[in-house]
Computed example of a mutant assay.
Amino acid sequence: MDGELTERGRRLTELRLAPLERRLAHVRGVAAAVDRLVTLVDPWEQDAVVASAWLHDIGYAPSVRSTGFHPIDGAGFVRAEGFPQLVVSLVAYHTGAIFEAGERGLSAELAEFSEPPQRLLDVLTCADMTTSPDGDPVDAGERVREILSRYGVDDPVHRAITRSGPELLAAVARVQSRASG
């Protein structure tokens, strides 16, 4: 999918995440995974969903960070760049962000963004949870274990993934069922 939003998202991400090579490799892998799944999405939403895959981790970019919570920082940046509400909401809520926002005391800040349709969020979550930090395909259960291994038990990421893990794996299963059905 090479629509206008996708291309803008790719260019911005490649520029902003250039200093973070491993993060950029992950984003490229997620975008490739969403590109393979995009047939599960209505045609008029496809460009926005692929663009959100490119932009989902842009909040990690040093030039974008403000709260230190990448979904909120990324969504604010994407909104300021004039992307449609659908892209903004997918970036804000991707991959269990609502759980981590709660752990970080940022639920009110996240709530400033509207929630995206679950079926579209599932596609992005599936791609994110089946892509390793290096951009390679990975089993979703292994991805959960990998994330937990990077963060101590007292870290908000560890606590959020522990709480959200079953829902993240359910989102992956829903998408994989739709893709194979």
Results as ranks from 00 to 15, higher is better:
156 P>R: 04
164 S>A: 15
166 P>Q: 04
147 I>S: 05
145 R>C: 09
120 L>E: 03
25 A>Q: 13
3 G>C: 10
2 D>Y: 11
49 V>Q: 01
181 G>E: 10
63 S>D: 15
100 E>G: 03
74 G>R: 00
66 S>A: 14
81 E>P: 02
152 G>Y: 04
39 T>Q: 11
88 V>L: 05
23 R>E: 15
177 S>R: 15
151 Y>T: 08
172 V>E: 00
52 S>I: 08
3 G>E: 10
22 R>L: 13
113 F>G: 00
93 Y>F: 13
71 P>G: 04
59 G>A: 08
11 R>Y: 07
65 R>A: 14
71 P>I: 05
134 D>L: 12
170 A>K: 11
19 P>C: 07
75 A>W: 01
140 A>V: 05
106 L>N: 03
90 L>S: 01
53 A>R: 02
122 D>N: 08
112 E>I: 07
127 A>E: 04
43 P>W: 11
142 E>W: 11
180 S>I: 13
10 R>S: 07
4 E>A: 14
155 D>I: 08
157 V>K: 09
177 S>M: 12
97 A>S: 15
138 V>G: 03
24 L>A: 04
158 H>C: 07
125 T>A: 10
33 A>K: 14
101 A>I: 06
113 F>D: 00
42 D>A: 14
83 F>I: 07
97 A>Q: 02
142 E>A: 15
24 L>D: 01
70 H>K: 10
89 S>Q: 10
158 H>G: 03
